[in-house]
Protein backbone atom coordinates (compact mmCIF):
# COMPACT_ATOMS: atom_id res chain seq x y z
CA UNK A 1 0.00 0.00 0.00
CA UNK A 2 2.92 2.33 0.73
CA UNK A 3 4.05 2.03 -2.89
CA UNK A 4 0.58 2.96 -4.10
CA UNK A 5 0.58 6.09 -1.98
CA UNK A 6 4.14 6.87 -3.06
CA UNK A 7 2.97 6.87 -6.70
CA UNK A 8 -0.08 8.93 -5.74
CA UNK A 9 1.91 11.52 -3.81
CA UNK A 10 4.48 11.81 -6.58
CA UNK A 11 1.68 12.62 -9.07
CA UNK A 12 0.11 15.03 -6.55
CA UNK A 13 3.40 16.88 -6.09
CA UNK A 14 4.10 17.00 -9.81
CA UNK A 15 0.66 18.32 -10.81
CA UNK A 16 0.30 20.78 -7.98
CA UNK A 17 3.83 22.02 -8.56
CA UNK A 18 2.70 23.53 -11.84
CA UNK A 19 1.89 27.19 -11.22
CA UNK A 20 -0.56 27.44 -14.10
CA UNK A 21 -2.98 25.28 -12.06
CA UNK A 22 -3.36 28.09 -9.51
CA UNK A 23 -3.58 30.71 -12.22
CA UNK A 24 -6.42 28.79 -13.89
CA UNK A 25 -8.15 28.34 -10.54
CA UNK A 26 -8.02 32.10 -9.95
CA UNK A 27 -9.34 32.66 -13.49
CA UNK A 28 -12.27 30.31 -12.82
CA UNK A 29 -13.17 32.06 -9.56
CA UNK A 30 -12.84 35.48 -11.26
CA UNK A 31 -15.19 34.37 -14.04
CA UNK A 32 -17.74 33.30 -11.45
CA UNK A 33 -17.42 36.71 -9.75
CA UNK A 34 -17.82 38.56 -13.05
CA UNK A 35 -21.26 37.01 -13.64
CA UNK A 36 -22.53 39.27 -10.86
CA UNK A 37 -22.20 42.16 -13.31
CA UNK A 38 -24.60 40.53 -15.76
CA UNK A 39 -27.71 41.50 -13.83
CA UNK A 40 -28.98 43.98 -16.42
CA UNK A 41 -28.07 41.82 -19.38
CA UNK A 42 -29.86 38.87 -17.77
CA UNK A 43 -32.86 41.02 -16.67
CA UNK A 44 -32.34 40.30 -12.99
CA UNK A 45 -31.25 36.70 -13.42
CA UNK A 46 -27.58 37.14 -12.50
CA UNK A 47 -27.93 34.68 -9.61
CA UNK A 48 -28.92 31.97 -12.09
CA UNK A 49 -25.93 32.82 -14.26
CA UNK A 50 -23.59 32.77 -11.27
CA UNK A 51 -24.81 29.37 -10.06
CA UNK A 52 -24.76 27.84 -13.55
CA UNK A 53 -21.34 29.27 -14.39
CA UNK A 54 -19.96 28.12 -11.06
CA UNK A 55 -21.24 24.59 -11.59
CA UNK A 56 -19.97 24.51 -15.16
CA UNK A 57 -16.48 25.81 -14.37
CA UNK A 58 -16.08 23.43 -11.44
CA UNK A 59 -17.06 20.52 -13.70
CA UNK A 60 -14.69 21.66 -16.45
CA UNK A 61 -11.87 22.03 -13.92
CA UNK A 62 -12.52 18.46 -12.78
CA UNK A 63 -12.49 17.26 -16.40
CA UNK A 64 -9.24 19.08 -17.25
CA UNK A 65 -7.50 17.82 -14.12
CA UNK A 66 -8.30 14.17 -14.75
CA UNK A 67 -7.43 14.47 -18.46
CA UNK A 68 -3.86 15.27 -17.35
CA UNK A 69 -3.61 11.58 -16.44
CA UNK A 70 -4.08 10.71 -20.11
CA UNK A 71 -0.74 12.43 -20.74
CA UNK A 72 1.02 11.14 -17.65
CA UNK A 73 0.67 7.35 -17.98
CA UNK A 74 1.43 6.98 -21.75
CA UNK A 75 4.42 9.32 -21.27
CA UNK A 76 5.79 7.17 -18.42
CA UNK A 77 5.21 4.04 -20.48
CA UNK A 78 6.98 5.48 -23.53
CA UNK A 79 9.92 6.92 -21.62
CA UNK A 80 10.43 3.68 -19.70
CA UNK A 81 9.82 5.26 -16.27
CA UNK A 82 6.91 2.90 -15.78
CA UNK A 83 9.08 -0.11 -16.62
CA UNK A 84 11.65 1.01 -14.03
CA UNK A 85 8.94 1.49 -11.41
CA UNK A 86 7.35 -1.84 -12.20
CA UNK A 87 10.72 -3.62 -12.00
CA UNK A 88 10.61 -2.85 -8.28
CA UNK A 89 8.31 -4.94 -6.06
CA UNK A 90 5.30 -2.98 -7.27
CA UNK A 91 2.30 -4.67 -8.84
CA UNK A 92 0.77 -3.22 -11.97
CA UNK A 93 -2.58 -2.89 -10.23
CA UNK A 94 -0.89 -0.91 -7.46
CA UNK A 95 0.68 1.34 -10.05
CA UNK A 96 -2.73 2.00 -11.62
CA UNK A 97 -4.34 2.56 -8.23
CA UNK A 98 -1.56 4.95 -7.27
CA UNK A 99 -2.19 6.98 -10.41
CA UNK A 100 -5.95 6.97 -9.85
CA UNK A 101 -5.65 8.03 -6.21
CA UNK A 102 -3.08 10.70 -7.08
CA UNK A 103 -5.10 12.34 -9.83
CA UNK A 104 -8.30 12.05 -7.77
CA UNK A 105 -6.61 13.91 -4.90
CA UNK A 106 -5.50 16.64 -7.24
CA UNK A 107 -8.95 16.84 -8.86
CA UNK A 108 -10.70 16.95 -5.51
CA UNK A 109 -8.28 19.62 -4.27
CA UNK A 110 -8.71 21.87 -7.31
CA UNK A 111 -12.50 21.52 -7.53
CA UNK A 112 -12.72 22.14 -3.78
CA UNK A 113 -10.66 25.32 -4.17
CA UNK A 114 -12.97 26.59 -6.91
CA UNK A 115 -16.05 25.51 -4.93
CA UNK A 116 -14.87 27.40 -1.85
CA UNK A 117 -14.18 30.49 -3.99
CA UNK A 118 -17.62 30.13 -5.57
CA UNK A 119 -19.39 29.83 -2.20
CA UNK A 120 -17.52 32.87 -0.83
CA UNK A 121 -18.45 34.96 -3.89
CA UNK A 122 -22.04 33.76 -3.74
CA UNK A 123 -22.27 34.70 -0.06
CA UNK A 124 -20.89 38.16 -0.79
CA UNK A 125 -23.36 38.78 -3.62
CA UNK A 126 -26.53 36.92 -2.70
CA UNK A 127 -26.29 36.09 1.00
CA UNK A 128 -25.80 32.70 2.61
CA UNK A 129 -25.73 29.94 -0.01
CA UNK A 130 -28.55 27.39 0.15
CA UNK A 131 -27.64 23.93 1.46
CA UNK A 132 -28.51 22.49 -1.95
CA UNK A 133 -25.75 24.52 -3.58
CA UNK A 134 -23.09 23.14 -1.25
CA UNK A 135 -24.42 19.60 -1.77
CA UNK A 136 -24.40 20.00 -5.56
CA UNK A 137 -20.78 21.19 -5.39
CA UNK A 138 -19.89 18.23 -3.21
CA UNK A 139 -21.29 15.92 -5.90
CA UNK A 140 -19.14 17.58 -8.56
CA UNK A 141 -16.08 17.15 -6.35
CA UNK A 142 -16.93 13.45 -5.92
CA UNK A 143 -17.48 13.02 -9.68
CA UNK A 144 -13.70 13.43 -10.08
CA UNK A 145 -13.28 9.76 -9.03
CA UNK A 146 -15.31 8.06 -11.82
CA UNK A 147 -13.97 10.60 -14.33
CA UNK A 148 -10.37 9.82 -13.34
CA UNK A 149 -11.01 6.09 -13.56
CA UNK A 150 -12.25 6.29 -17.15
CA UNK A 151 -9.16 8.32 -18.12
CA UNK A 152 -7.00 5.73 -16.37
CA UNK A 153 -8.67 3.02 -18.45
CA UNK A 154 -7.96 4.66 -21.82
CA UNK A 155 -4.47 5.84 -20.94
CA UNK A 156 -3.46 2.29 -19.98
CA UNK A 157 -3.45 1.12 -23.61
CA UNK A 158 -3.69 4.19 -25.86
CA UNK A 159 -1.20 6.93 -26.65
CA UNK A 160 -1.52 10.43 -25.14
CA UNK A 161 -3.50 12.26 -27.79
CA UNK A 162 -5.93 9.43 -28.48
CA UNK A 163 -6.41 8.64 -24.79
CA UNK A 164 -7.10 12.30 -23.97
CA UNK A 165 -9.52 12.73 -26.86
CA UNK A 166 -11.46 9.53 -26.23
CA UNK A 167 -11.56 10.18 -22.48
CA UNK A 168 -12.98 13.68 -23.07
CA UNK A 169 -15.63 12.28 -25.40
CA UNK A 170 -16.46 9.55 -22.89
CA UNK A 171 -16.81 11.98 -20.00
CA UNK A 172 -18.97 14.26 -22.15
CA UNK A 173 -21.18 11.33 -23.14
CA UNK A 174 -21.19 10.17 -19.51
CA UNK A 175 -22.72 13.49 -18.52
CA UNK A 176 -25.23 13.31 -21.35
CA UNK A 177 -26.33 9.75 -20.66
CA UNK A 178 -29.39 10.71 -18.66
CA UNK A 179 -30.61 12.84 -21.54
CA UNK A 180 -29.83 9.99 -23.91
CA UNK A 181 -32.29 7.90 -21.93
CA UNK A 182 -30.27 6.55 -19.07
CA UNK A 183 -27.70 3.85 -19.70
CA UNK A 184 -26.70 3.40 -16.09
CA UNK A 185 -23.25 1.85 -16.23
CA UNK A 186 -21.26 5.08 -16.56
CA UNK A 187 -23.64 7.91 -15.83
CA UNK A 188 -22.03 11.14 -14.67
CA UNK A 189 -25.31 13.06 -14.90
CA UNK A 190 -26.11 11.65 -11.47
CA UNK A 191 -23.45 13.99 -10.10
CA UNK A 192 -24.94 17.04 -11.78
CA UNK A 193 -27.52 18.69 -9.53
CA UNK A 194 -27.03 22.35 -10.49
CA UNK A 195 -30.67 22.98 -11.40
CA UNK A 196 -31.82 21.45 -8.13
CA UNK A 197 -29.37 23.66 -6.25
CA UNK A 198 -30.60 26.79 -8.01
CA UNK A 199 -34.30 26.04 -7.53
CA UNK A 200 -33.71 25.14 -3.85
CA UNK A 201 -34.91 21.57 -4.15
CA UNK A 202 -34.00 19.45 -1.15
CA UNK A 203 -31.16 17.05 -1.95
CA UNK A 204 -31.31 14.39 0.81
CA UNK A 205 -28.04 13.33 2.51
CA UNK A 206 -28.76 9.74 1.41
CA UNK A 207 -28.36 10.92 -2.18
CA UNK A 208 -24.89 12.24 -1.40
CA UNK A 209 -23.99 8.96 0.27
CA UNK A 210 -25.19 7.03 -2.77
CA UNK A 211 -23.11 9.38 -4.91
CA UNK A 212 -19.96 8.54 -2.95
CA UNK A 213 -20.74 4.79 -3.10
CA UNK A 214 -21.44 4.93 -6.82
CA UNK A 215 -18.25 6.91 -7.52
CA UNK A 216 -16.16 4.36 -5.61
CA UNK A 217 -17.90 1.36 -7.22
CA UNK A 218 -17.40 2.85 -10.70
CA UNK A 219 -13.72 3.39 -9.94
CA UNK A 220 -13.31 -0.15 -8.55
CA UNK A 221 -14.96 -1.79 -11.57
CA UNK A 222 -12.99 0.29 -14.08
CA UNK A 223 -9.71 -0.35 -12.23
CA UNK A 224 -10.46 -4.11 -12.39
CA UNK A 225 -11.00 -3.98 -16.18
CA UNK A 226 -7.97 -1.73 -16.67
CA UNK A 227 -5.86 -4.07 -14.58
CA UNK A 228 -6.78 -7.04 -16.82
CA UNK A 229 -5.72 -5.10 -19.92
CA UNK A 230 -2.61 -3.56 -18.33
CA UNK A 231 -1.38 -6.89 -16.97
CA UNK A 232 -1.54 -8.43 -20.41
CA UNK A 233 0.43 -5.57 -21.91
CA UNK A 234 4.03 -6.13 -22.83
CA UNK A 235 6.03 -3.28 -21.27
CA UNK A 236 9.55 -2.60 -22.43
Amino acid sequence: MDETFAIASSLWKRLLGVRVVYFLTICAVSLIAITNMYDILMIGESRALMVDTGMMLTTIAAMLTVISLAFDIPKELQSGIASVLLAKPLGRTHYLMGKLIGVSWVGIFITSLISIGFVVIYSMSHGAPPAGLVKALFLIVISVIPMASIVLFFSSFLNEAVAATISTVFIWVGYSLASLNGVTLFDLSLFSMGAEAFYNYEIPPSYLLKGVVSALLTAISIVCVTSFIFNKRDLQ
Binding site: A48, D52, M56, T59, Y175, S179, S189, A195, Y201, Y207
Partner: peptide, 23 residues
Protein backbone atom coordinates in the same frame (compact mmCIF):
# COMPACT_ATOMS: atom_id res chain seq x y z
CA UNK B 1 -34.24 9.96 -6.40
CA UNK B 2 -33.46 12.54 -9.08
CA UNK B 3 -36.94 12.17 -10.55
CA UNK B 4 -38.45 12.62 -7.09
CA UNK B 5 -36.29 15.62 -6.18
CA UNK B 6 -36.95 17.44 -9.44
CA UNK B 7 -39.78 16.11 -11.61
CA UNK B 8 -38.95 18.74 -14.25
CA UNK B 9 -35.82 16.75 -15.15
CA UNK B 10 -37.96 14.56 -17.39
CA UNK B 11 -38.85 17.67 -19.42
CA UNK B 12 -35.23 18.63 -20.17
CA UNK B 13 -34.27 18.13 -23.82
CA UNK B 14 -32.08 15.22 -24.89
CA UNK B 15 -29.42 17.52 -26.35
CA UNK B 16 -26.01 16.06 -25.46
CA UNK B 17 -24.60 19.20 -23.83
CA UNK B 18 -23.08 17.30 -20.89
CA UNK B 19 -24.46 18.73 -17.65
CA UNK B 20 -24.49 22.29 -18.95
CA UNK B 21 -28.18 22.58 -19.93
CA UNK B 22 -28.86 25.37 -17.49
CA UNK B 23 -25.77 27.34 -18.41
Amino acid sequence: NQAEINPDRAKISGKPVASFHKF
